[in-house]
């Protein structure tokens, strides 16, 4: 299957890339790992006039943790993030990165491409909600930072303008008494999740929940959050009854589409179950237990 013809550009710097994109206009698209874009082009669901290959741009392949301030370059692949030292400090990152698709896709696909695609089935946008991440964007007008909650507007829609690139993702390492877990339910490795849940919670003084972030993926046009569910948990000792109530509240706020992966009701049932599993794992990790985590397969 061949995509429709397009012109290919390989700029040598970020400045040049942004300049090219603004010159070429809205019919041009950046190309990073291509693991979302190429399948779309092959199906001719999109026919951009030009592709601007950003995958070799210098300065966007990095990961660092300076005193708890994490910065991940947009071109970091899922595979590199999943194997990095960051996973020791923030285990929920490993849950997400190592559970995306299969080794071949993880070797090419990038975190920047995943958030920019704003695909409701992509894992990174949901995961980054649990860490209150900030997206660094470079455009004609310069640099701006946008919280992930504002960055994703709708399905496949972000705040990026045509000539703007994601260059970096930033967030803080959660405190030592915090634990997180991200679980996606997938039919097989090279399939997008049917549903996914991310939870990051901080426990203090006899297991009282100090802080919590909850997000559901593949459960609506954009990652689903719920102040109501978070407020139910904050300041309380986390009993399974309370967790069930929170699960109910956030699942209530979701709107999972019926599709080949299941009916809406089936997906809600999966979300409730994943929520409880992710909460258990997050609580154990908050208590200091080291657990490997990953996506669940049928």
């Amino acid at each position: 299957m061949y995509p429709a013809p397009f012109c290919y550009h390989r700029p040598g710097s970020l400045k040049e890339a942004v300049g090219l994109l603004s010159e070429l206009g809205e019919a041009a698209k950046p190309l990073a790992g291509g693991q979302s874009l190429i399948p779309i082009l092959k199906l001719r669901m999109d026919e951009p006039s030009d592709l601007v290959d950003i995958s070799r741009l210098p300065g966007l392949h990095f990961m660092q943790n300076d005193d708890g301030n994490v910065r991940i370059g947009a071109l970091s692949t899922h595979a590199l993030i999943g194997r990095s030292d960051l996973v020791g400090a923030v285990p929920i990152l490993g849950d997400c990165a190592n559970g995306i698709a299969d080794p071949q896709v993880r070797a090419r696909g990038t975190i920047g491409g995943s958030v920019s695609s704003a695909d409701p089935s992509c894992d990174w946008p949901t995961l980054l909600h649990t860490l209150d991440a900030v997206i660094v964007c470079h455009g004609k007008a310069g640099v701006r930072t946008v919280p992930i909650r504002e960055f994703i507007r709708d399905s496949y829609t972000t705040v990026l303008d045509d000539a703007e690139l994601v260059t970096e993702i930033r967030f803080k390492v959660p405190p030592a008494n915090s634990g997180g877990a991200y679980i996606g339910f997938k039919k097989s490795a090279p399939a997008y999740p049917t549903a996914a849940v991310g939870i990051q919670l901080t426990l203090a003084d006899g297991d009282v929940c100090q802080q919590v972030r909850l997000a559901l993926g593949a459960a609506g046009p954009r990652p689903v959050t719920s102040d109501e569910a978070e407020n139910l948990l904050r300041g309380k000792v986390l009993t399974s009854e309370l967790l069930k109530q929170a699960a109910e509240a956030i699942v209530e706020a979701s709107d999972p589409p019926a599709d080949a992966r299941g009916s809406s009701d089936f997906k809600r049932a999966v979300l409730r179950s994943l929520f409880m599993q992710a909460a258990d794992r997050a609580i154990e990790r908050a208590a200091g237990t080291q657990i490997m985590g990953n996506h669940e397969y049928v």
């Binding site: 390989r10 190309l31 291509g34 190429i38 399948p39 290959d53 595979a79 080794p103 071949q104 090419r108």
Partner: peptide, 13 residues
Amino acid sequence: GNAVKSCTLFAVQ
């Protein structure tokens, strides 16, 4: 050094 799906990569890449 990485396994990749050659149907999901342009030759120019």
